[in-house]
Design a protein around this nucleic acid. Sequence first.
RNA 1: GCGCCCGUCGUCCAGCCUGGCCUAGGACACCGCCCUUUCAAGGCGGCGACACGGGUUCGAAUCCCGUCGGGCGUACCA
Length: 481
Amino acid sequence: MSVRVRIAPSPTGDPHVGTAYVALFNRAFARQQGGQFLLRIEDTDRTRSTPESEAMIFESLRWLGLTWDEGPDVGGPSGPYRQSERLPIYKDHTEKLLASGAAYLCFCTSERLDALRREQTTAKLPTRYDGACRDLAPAEASRRRTAGEACVVRLRIPASGELAFDDLVRGRISFQAEQIDDQVLLKGDGYPTYHLANVVDDHLMGITHVMRAEEWIPSVPKHLLLYRAFGWTPPGMAHLPLLRNPDRSKISKRKQPTSLNWYRDQGYLPEAMVNFLALMGFSQPDGKEIFPFEEMARNFAFERITTSGPVFDLKKLEWLNGTYLRELIPGALAARLAPFGASAQDPARVAAILPLVQERLKRLAEWGELTDFFFTAPEPGPLLLEQGKHPAAEGAAMLEEAAAALQDQADFSSAAVEALLRGKQALRGWKTGDYFMTLRVAVTGRKATPPLTDTFAVLGREEVVRRLRAAAAWLGRAREA
RNA sequence: GCGCCCGUCGUCCAGCCUGGCCUAGGACACCGCCCUUUCAAGGCGGCGACACGGGUUCGAAUCCCGUCGGGCGUACCA
């Protein structure tokens, strides 16, 4: 039987990094096994689901290259892939459960339930449904339902017994039935809860392995009971660790960026993002840390997945991104930079700058701040006074001399300019660091830049001379003041 | 509270299943040095962990028990 796996995100809010994480692992397994990877939208929460959110999920997963074989937008043999479009299916299955007694109708109001929960909490008791409707006579219950009384459908959990399964990454996990609550399966609005929809869909869609986050482990026994009640064989289950904030709580937007949009806008490369996510809980047999998706798929194994929750470390992501950025060929880098301002700039100039900033770029969004002085002359300012131990007068002289010499320099290549400047500096006995830093600040307005003469070559003679003179003039005025 | 999951450097990961090869290895970060006109990149080096306590064993990071710690769940949310 061919492997079929899925991710089942809820379209609420921004596309979450955790969704991409789980998608990656599922897709890697499917790829390795030559199986299918499906995308199912779990939009059973009517109050929180939005089409915008769904669209962003599609978009960001595609951005990461985590595409799916079947899904709401691409179709497939097991559709519909949006749970809101499968309501009759859940209804039918609920009726079967009701008929067999595996589930029952519950007429308790949410007010009563809330009060019950409060009492249990203050009494330090486990908060659970008290079973008020559990033993209603079926005939009586269905009469009340037909009469229009509001109700939900609850799963009837057996009074005792062990519910266990073998997690593919964690081994055997078991629960005692008495600890489990009679879960709601069908809500008052006729929509299924996660538990019902998830089990029914996974079965009907032929899912062979459920790989999802650790937070779902406690709901497995309910699912097991559902599979049993329907007479179905449960799929293999693998629970991935939960991504964590630096304080080790479950990753959340208040403590850490979680939106895939944010990572895209910051200029993290999708391939770096995928590689980084793979590093969270997965490792290559040879210890290699930089590898593409295909290589992850090749070596994927449940045994290679870690059980403890990894902290999402932005620092390491940034490093990884930098390594991917450095490997890009110039044309590719220029294309990636287009959305970050480069598309509005002179392509020839951009191309000339690229080799100078490529190894200094950690995120594409840094492009602007790293290169603005190539496009706009800096305003001479006090930073000029801070350079070296020479007085303002001498600084002005340095700049004037450099400007004069450069003005007559026909060959403006980096090497030629460097030779000229070094000659000047040696002749005058100026300290190397002092001299070049003064020139640097004069021409770029900052203390950290790509190699100076390379920068000069890109800017061109006219521009460099103009900036040197402007800075010298400023220093001259500063001396008078 | 109750249930479940987890516990190796600050962080990610290797080692654990199949005890000795571990005076615990790699990566990020940090610190220092080298290269160097600055910043990067690169090279070299440093700092730094088996949560604790018992047990099993000739021998335990590895097996068992307990304690402690962290996390998740405990919804007509997923």
